[in-house]
Design a protein around this nucleic acid. Structure first.
Lengths: 334, 334
DNA sequence: CTGTTAGCGCGTTCAC
DNA sequence: GTGAACGCGCTAACAG
């Protein structure tokens, strides 16, 4: 392996000068050319470990995600990757499976490895593992007062869902969500939903179920039986509009309701949350409140950059959402 | 930050002894306990940069992927992550967008950063960027004779597709694929398809289209017009069975064919490749040849570990595939 | 501008 | 079994 010393010797200058050339400091024209030639000739490349040891920085950013098989998370990762790579940062992924210990382990590793910062979407209790020294941006979750977080306008999203069900003729609504949602900003989806119903005198109920721990806690496919049971309790009442706390849940609800003989959207309208699309590109899977994933990712990354730059940052929780028509709600006249 | 020196001082031993404790070398019992206590007390953690500088290893592995928004790739990443994290490796992701330069840049970065190895699924010409010194495992692509690769049994997959179309009554088949597929092992899908047709005297055609470069080259949603044109040329012949080289393509073909008035699977049966499912968990999106993604990932990782271990490895190209029923082929009597 | 040098934190010789 | 000293490759501070 060729080092900075070899280059210095070959170019007939000192290592300091070589270092200056590499890092764009002012260097005399001729020496600079000499050094560049030697670098070319020897095929020299900086050893970022040595550099990091000195500077305590690595240009790595850890992204913590509960899952990758859930398209919503891979979509977020994809967008974060774009924004981060534009900033010259590389991404180390941590797939936590919702396991707080694994998250903690990774945060520790990140510290040891002198990772520049962390962007995390986490629903477990990791507050105590976070040292003040780490640059951390949270998504959809308020972790600690000193940790900024970014989320869409969940309150407006919930309201929007209720409103769109009502506009399409639903009279008796149901808010259907997972327990784990209760922990995070996501709970505001329900709040917004309830607000609208109360403000407009709409009949409504709220149902929730706890997802089974394990392989696919964020997918709602593992908990199909639970969902079926909850749904059973409502399907034969005159509930005619359901707001599900995620598209995953909405898809399963639609499937199960159809099995129970319901026609969607004629008998029962369903609105999900996230705005997922077929293969991430095609048509919406269900009618939904769409999250601005790209903006969300970009906002997180900007925020992290500011922190690394020692600028002051504040949480942002009002990223705009919108209703998208996906075939599980009735068409509206214009 | 507390260093190994601090621990040594606190424990009243030398740094060498502390190092030995950390790395499990033989150390006197009492001193060992002393050191461990100090480590606890001071909250000491090894600086992996300093260690890496010395050992030239980092426990990082780069995974190169064309895209993340394509569920097939995120599924692969998910499975690779599982296998790799079991081995104590961390993952740095490189999303290339099919850009050879970006891939090259990352391979270089990996070298500079003393990354342990690379697992890559790449369709561009990166042969020349690969230095012999890097541990590299390729997926679905034969890059160079000295670089091992892993792929499923594409030949059998193609045959299986043709066979299943025929078993379900299709008489005039069409193999529909993208140009970019031609470059890699994926081309064997067509070969297998043709083999079966020739062996069994089945009428068949092959159509291909070149995907537009850009944002979503692997998704087949950007190239909808092209697909439509190709399809148009065949849809009014008596073609009644299509084998698409990916599920993405199959989905678009189905949509477009339906728009053209075809009923699927009655008038036209379609089989894709990959075995993607709704939201990665639900029912198959289309009838398809399913890839053993988990096995594929595990095989890659095992192979990489062997390389790092200086064991000899050989390419594996016969991972088993199977047909999955997804509603775009007719039901078969049993 | 340029060269010299002192660490960054750790692993690894050797002597003992 | 233990400790002192050296070097991994680089940056930054300083002196010239």
């Amino acid at each position: 392996m060729t080092t900075i010393k070899d280059v210095a010797k070959d170019a007939g200058v000192s290592v300091g000068t070589v270092s200056n050339v590499i890092n764009g400091a002012r260097v005399g024209k001729e020496k600079k050319i000499l050094v560049e030639q030697s670098i070319q000739k020897l095929g020299y490349e900086v050893n970022t470990l040595a550099r990091g040891l000195k500077t305590q920085k690595t240009d790595y950013v850890v992204v913590i995600l509960p899952e990758l098989e859930n398209p919503f998370f891979s979509l977020i990762l994809s967008n974060i990757e774009k924004a981060l790579s534009e900033r010259g940062k590389q991404i180390v992924i941590c797939i936590s499976g919702g396991d707080a210990e694994k998250e903690a382990k990774f945060i520790n590793l990140a510290k040891r490895n002198k990772i520049d910062g962390i962007i995390g979407i986490t629903y477990s209790k990791i507050d105590k593992y976070l040292t003040d020294s780490m640059a951390f941006v949270s998504i959809d979750r308020h972790l600690r007062t000193d940790i900024p977080y970014v989320s869409n306008d969940n309150l407006a999203g919930g309201r929007l869902a209720a409103e769109n069900l009502c506009l399409r003729g639903a009279k008796n609504l149901l808010c259907f969500q997972t327990i784990s949602s209760l922990d995070s900003e996501v709970r505001n989806r329900r709040r917004g939903f309830e607000q609208y119903c109360i403000d407009h005198g709409v009949r409504y109920n709220c149902a929730e179920f706890s997802e089974t721990q394990g392989s696919s806690i964020y997918t709602s496919f593992g908990s199909r039986n639970l969902i079926r049971n909850v749904l059973n309790a409502y399907v034969n009442t005159d509930v005619d509009g359901i707001f599900a706390s995620s598209d995953h849940l909405a898809v399963v609800i639609c499937e199960e309701a159809r099995k129970m003989g319901k026609h969607i959207p004629e008998d029962l309208q369903v609105i999900g949350f996230d705005g997922l699309r077929l293969l991430n590109y095609g048509s919406p899977l269900v009618s939904s409140i769409e999250q601005p994933v790209e903006l969300l990712a970009r906002t997180c990354v900007d925020m992290l950059m500011k922190i690394l730059n020692h600028e002051e940052v504040h949480s942002i929780t009002n990223l705009p959402v919108r209703f998208v028509e996906g075939g599980t709600t009735k068409k509206m006249e214009r």
